[in-house]
Design a protein around this nucleic acid. Sequence first.
DNA 1: TTGAAAGCGCTACCAA
DNA 2: TTGGTAGCGCTTTCAA
Lengths: 348, 348
Amino acid sequence: MVSRADGPTTGPTIHDVARSAGVSTATVSRALRGVDRVSPDTRDRVLRAALSLDYVASPTATSLATGRTGVVGVLAPFLSRWFFAHALDGVEHTLRTHGLHLLLLNVGSQPSAEPLLDEVRLRKRVDALLVVSRDLRASEVALLSALHVPVATLGVDVGPWDRVGVDDAAAGDTAMTHLLELGHRRLAYVGGDVEQDVHVATAVQRLVGVRRALRRKGVDPARVRVVVGDWTVAGGLAAGDAVLGQPCPPTAVLAASDEMAIGVLLAARRRGVRVPEELSVMGVDDHELAWTHDLTTVAQPVEALGAAAAKLLVDALAAPVGALRRERRVVTLTTSLVVRGSTGTAPA
Amino acid sequence: MVSRADGPTTGPTIHDVARSAGVSTATVSRALRGVDRVSPDTRDRVLRAALSLDYVASPTATSLATGRTGVVGVLAPFLSRWFFAHALDGVEHTLRTHGLHLLLLNVGSQPSAEPLLDEVRLRKRVDALLVVSRDLRASEVALLSALHVPVATLGVDVGPWDRVGVDDAAAGDTAMTHLLELGHRRLAYVGGDVEQDVHVATAVQRLVGVRRALRRKGVDPARVRVVVGDWTVAGGLAAGDAVLGQPCPPTAVLAASDEMAIGVLLAARRRGVRVPEELSVMGVDDHELAWTHDLTTVAQPVEALGAAAAKLLVDALAAPVGALRRERRVVTLTTSLVVRGSTGTAPA
DNA sequence: TTGAAAGCGCTACCAA
DNA sequence: TTGGTAGCGCTTTCAA
């Protein structure tokens, strides 16, 4: 242990180990990393010395020498929302398994132009980047590309990068099909705000699926009332209120997220509308508390999505350096219908 | 732009800037960091050169030279649970504001002895450490201490470090007082599993507060049935079921968390027990979905807790190096009663 | 198989 | 105020 003038106590360095083992630092480096040829005997001596000194190589020094940091940056617009928190779990687990670190950055929900998600903070700090459910404008895509590291996206189709997500159209289709098969024909869809929204694509795609289901069943898509929520319970509540307050209210409401669906449920309860006798409500996600509201939904495998996204980056980093411009990889995981008590056959 | 043999394209270095500005690298370093005296003219030239080259100092090189990484490690047992996700939001925001990065590590919920939260991964990687709601055994405390960096804890009182949290006893007291003032005398408390649990202290302290309230009101603490949940809705459901199934069931149940309280609510609903007419239920936290169940609770300022914890570390890092062993700092934020519809006066 | 030494890019000390 | 230069701790040729 050596004391430095600035900062905390610094541990033993590779020189200490070299001296203690009676070899050169080059040999210590090789022995400890298990690469290159080192005689079993020498290796043993080095390992023993390192162990007894409680030596750990300095990550910064290694980074400077190799050009790799062993860190993956994760960019997300919210950290506390259900989807992100769970996806993060999967990402973290996978990265840790592969010996990588996770640098977390909240980039805000607005695809802003100004601070341009200060990429400066990322420059040479991370080996790869994961963008979680955040739309990016062209300038931002360019900025991230300029980092010259592998990038992957989760839940959004933006940039020329690898990506993972669910088939949102299929999810919307599955949900709407469920409602149609229960006989509902007076329908409403609560989507995200198409104006300024981080999940534009998601909301739009789910609606595409909804329309597809309608057409397949021979129902005019125009019959579905489309209102906007803002992906929150409060937004769903407001949307539900608006829809249920109309002259000829729908018998079924599909919300693009469970949280909004719960809002619709609350709106119904406040108005004394019985669920599912008079109104069926369903969402998408299978939020961990969805079942506490007995909410029918279309589940997406969030942790698995996070894990898959991380794996994409792990692979990219493992690839031989020269392997430039491989095929773009797109991983799509499947969603599944979860029927609970909030949906039932259409009232007569 | 220079191409390196291994790895991605490397940006311009300090030498490029120095050459371009016609000064030494030392001057570039000084000018760019704004420390030390540099003539306005020179500074200007350097800044201009750096800008036109799109130069950003290599964080690894800086770290190696200064001994500081600009990174704070955050250790948490779960990433997806409500409390952690929200606390993380506060932490991230504060760190970012102060130019620090957040390295996220899931250390698992079990105060395990074996992999001993592989501190090796943290050695020399972080300037400071934040432990979020995770009990640590003595060996783990020693391990983290050996890192020789400032440490703070959030939501747990462990180790000799700075910490922030709420007054859990006060929260329990507040909650129980509310129920007592509504006239309830047949009571139950759903706490965490005292055996193997990450939040032992939290559960225990809240119970301490509960007992304090009881004594103050002249009620025998022994009258309160104490059952264990596991901090989940399912656990609360099971606990609620057990309690409500007894011969002389309580008229009010206090759960140590909102999620467990929601479970109790579900148990009541399944048994046809009306809330709040026949049974009052309340929790602690003010989970973001608590209001969707009209749950009375004691709110804790989670984001603020995270922010405060991060601030503790920011301060510690800003302190002059010699400032060893200051007073231990303990920040306690206050909780507040949030009355909703799940509690009412005790039935006759 | 091993060692010497040249970097990696930046900071900080000491002179000028 | 500025420049020269010696590290920071590790990896990686190139020789031996």
